[in-house]
Design a protein around this nucleic acid. Structure first.
Length: 194
DNA sequence: AAATTGATCCGCT
DNA sequence: GCGGATCAATTTG
């Protein structure tokens, strides 16, 4: 179960973030298509890496292609894909594809639109927690390909995704003008319209 | 339709 | 002690 080529991720997050749209994010028997991302960088006042490495953000300075998972507002987990040192891409929304019934149970809703339409929602739907912080992503679609049940998985789309939309990031109070949020244009699975 | 609030934790000053 | 890369329920216009 090879980790994904580190060269793909060892770049600024603002380059990687739009390219991750269309990838599938999977864990266990659940998976969804990434439809919304945000980039964070070390010289970016809104980024957890802005003030250098700490215990919480150490994964952001670790190997590219690994996960940075942090707790948000005391309640939610949010997952990032680590890029170049201090760079990371926050996964903000998925189109649910696999394991919808488990997701509905975990989320406590039957409204599919509400399963993965936000960074805290999708981690709950896929059961991503701090136990995945610092863990690598593997490039396998399922366990039959040799991945462990607990491996975070990313699956590249057949063709690069086009029809993107770009705008300002959500829920931050610093560096609010950077256009570092990307989404699949018109997708009904976004956390918020552009 | 938009604004407000409560839940609840951790990192940093 | 304060505020945050959030969410959902409630209140208000």
């Amino acid at each position: 179960m090879p980790a994904i080529a580190s060269s793909f991720f060892d770049r600024p997050a603002a380059e990687v973030a739009p390219e991750l749209l269309g990838y599938q994010l999977a864990l266990g028997s659940t998976a969804g298509c990434i439809v919304e991302t945000e980039a964070y960088a070390p010289d970016d006042a809104a980024s957890h890496s802005f003030s250098g490495p700490t215990r919480r953000n150490r994964a952001m300075f670790g190997p590219p292609g690994h996960a940075y998972v942090y707790r948000s507002y005391g309640l939610h987990w949010c997952v990032n894909v680590v890029c170049a040192p201090g760079h990371a891409v926050l996964i903000r929304a998925l189109q649910p594809l696999t394991g919808l019934e488990i997701m509905r149970q975990r989320r406590g809703t039957t409204l599919d639109r509400a399963l993965c339409s936000g960074p805290g929602k999708l981690t709950q739907a896929l059961a991503i927690t701090d136990q995945h912080d610092g863990q690598r992503f593997v490039e396998r679609a399922g366990f039959a390909d040799g991945a462990d049940f607990d491996d975070l998985r990313l699956i590249a789309p057949i063709l690069p995704t086009t029809n993107l939309q770009q705008g300002r990031r959500i829920g931050i109070s610093r560096a609010i003008d950077l256009p570092w949020r990307w989404g699949i244009a018109g997708s009904p699975w976004l956390s918020k319209k552009f």
